[in-house]
Design a protein around this nucleic acid. Structure first.
Lengths: 341, 341
DNA sequence: ATGAAAGCGCTAACAG
DNA sequence: CTGTTAGCGCTTTCAT
């Protein structure tokens, strides 16, 4: 029977270096000063053993957690993936790791994850709620520093970072009117999501010469788009379409193609949430680009302050979206790629 | 001074229920049987206090970790995001949470993350290495159950799940020849990545009537595509382009558009890695679709077995890609959307 | 069926 | 500057 390889502990390092465990800890954490000689012996023992601290045990004793929880509605959604990616990097800079959980757009699952994640005793939480009803999913005396991002919850007391949904959507709405649309159909997943709601309200508040109507299609858009198809072939076909989120936009754009409608000649098209492909299709799509990276960085900044002990009043940040007007909303020029075909 | 709200510990639960901490633990873990009366009292105390176990302390004592580490080259890449998303769900089903780290395509960062993640004493690791040289980034006696995915490392002893890169790429190569291409340019990030290498070798092995050449453009493709542009405008312009990964494909497709080349009339176009947008552009792109979800699920299955104590010989799984022939590789029919324009 | 006590790996407090 | 000791929250013997 060979000696089974065991994860080295601080005690093994201490023994090998011929010092006490406290000295090892001091060398590693640099709190108390240690003589160069001892420090060197410890460093070598650490290297030889391939020792890395057990960060869980460390937290247990010190009370300092190096973990933050991240809860998103859907990791497969590239917007949220990008958010998490930026967050992960910012967190690492600060010496934190992240535990990521996806609620899969299911409020019940979100509640479950939110409860479960507390088991890790994270130093903080960053949450993009999957709908407005976050309050009922947090435990009574929720004491973990928490930042909510992207969507506005039904609960105060947390820092919040989101984008200027209303004004950005309003710009699109006015632009559609200015480029000749008189009737517009706005399509989104659900008004129960605050940013979809804000966008729709932004459209309504925009005024302008185009009359808009709103349609909710839910999260599995491809299945729910059938009734919409009828609206697009009938005589009452709107002059313009405005998709309020990426998921919807993808499905809606495909539907428009399947119906053989030409953009922008037959119907103008705009989207909230810009993805790479929107600049590659012909004509390229008018879209609102959200500052996802900036949102993640701001969320991290806010959380850092809270984790550092800031107990000031909760802060709300609204970041500005970029609105990109492109060929899909006219003027009636065909794009290069289309001309070529 | 109000009583500061404190995270409830098992001791508080025990006191409130009027039982010992051992009994609380027994109720929660269901190991030993507990009288209905006591069980009920504990359950209520848990509910009233909003207690959730400290999973770190639990691991410390029991040695059972409920955490697995996931290391990917780039979380912002939608393929990897999708991988992580599927993984996260599978892990949750098994009662595990995941710590996610991104190497940002940087081997040095990967080494750092790989070392750092051991601090969490994870029960297992799932790694998509950012290049082939994984061996030198793992500590000497790496004892954590580990599954490598997507790319083949320079080190044996780990379970591996990847796709049939060579055969799938070969199919594309033959198809390009069959649709009339005599010269083809294959473009990818770097041959140092095993799957890119396998794809290129698959092209070479395919035979067929088209002569291929390979070009490496690195990871920040947009910057490195300039020399490529010259190849595409000169007299020696190839008949076909084949991008070996998503990042490259996105940049390359954009370049083709900017140069005003028509697909497939001026040049045929195919891509390894299928993304949504490839079906939305005109003409839709011929592409190899990787079974990312299946790969993640298989990786989890393999890891589960290892974590359960299976010490059998390491396993390699090759999943089959779907190859979708579309308009971008001819025959010389314009797509519907193009016809309309 | 229940509880007392030990100890996982670590750091903080204190003694020397 | 260094070592000893206690104890974080939990699970696991081992008594009772």
């Amino acid at each position: 029977m060979v000696a089974k390889p065991q994860t080295p502990s601080i005690r093994m390092v201490a023994e090998r270096a011929g010092v006490s465990v406290a000295t090892v800890s001091n060398v590693l954490n640099g709190k108390t000063s240690v003589s160069p000689d001892f420090a060197e012996r410890v460093t070598r023992a650490v290297r030889e053993l391939g020792y890395v601290v057990d960060i869980g045990a460390s937290r247990l004793r010190s009370g300092k957690a190096a973990l933050v929880g991240v809860v998103v509605p859907d990791l497969a959604n590239s917007m949220f993936a990008s958010f998490v990616s930026t967050l992960e990097h910012a967190a690492r800079q600060g010496g934190f790791d992240i535990v990521v959980v996806s609620a899969r757009n299911d409020p019940a699952e979100e509640a479950d994850r939110l409860s479960n994640i507390r088991s890790w005793r994270p130093a903080g939480l960053i949450v993009i709620p999957c709908d407005g009803a976050l309050a009922e999913r947090l435990p009574e005396g929720h004491a973990i520093p928490t930042v909510v991002a992207d969507r506005i919850p039904d609960i105060a007391g947390f820092d919040l970072v989101a984008v200027d949904n209303g004004p950005a959507a309003g710009k699109i709405a006015r632009h559609l009117g200015e480029t000749g649309a008189r009737t517009g159909l706005v399509v989104g997943t659900s008004l129960s999501i605050s940013n979809v709601r804000e966008r729709w309200e932004g459209v309504l508040a925009a005024g302008g010469s185009c009359a808009f109507e709103m349609l909710e299609v839910g999260f599995d858009a491809p299945d729910h788009l059938a009734p919409l198809a009828e609206r697009l072939v009938g005589a009452a076909r709107p002059d313009a379409l405005f998709a309020l989120d990426h998921t919807t936009s993808l499905a809606l754009y495909r539907l428009v193609g399947e119906l053989g409608l030409r953009i922008p000649q037959d119907i103008a098209y705009a989207s909230f949430d810009e993805m790479e492909w929107m600049r590659l299709v012909a004509p390229p799509l008018t879209a609102v680009r959200q500052p996802v990276e900036a949102m993640a960085e701001e969320a991290w900044t806010l959380l850092s302050k809270r984790m550092a002990g800031d107990h000031g009043a909760s802060i709300t940040r609204r970041l500005t979206c970029a609105v990109e007007m492109r060929g899909s909303t006219g003027p009636r020029e065909a794009s290069r790629r289309s001309e070529a075909a």
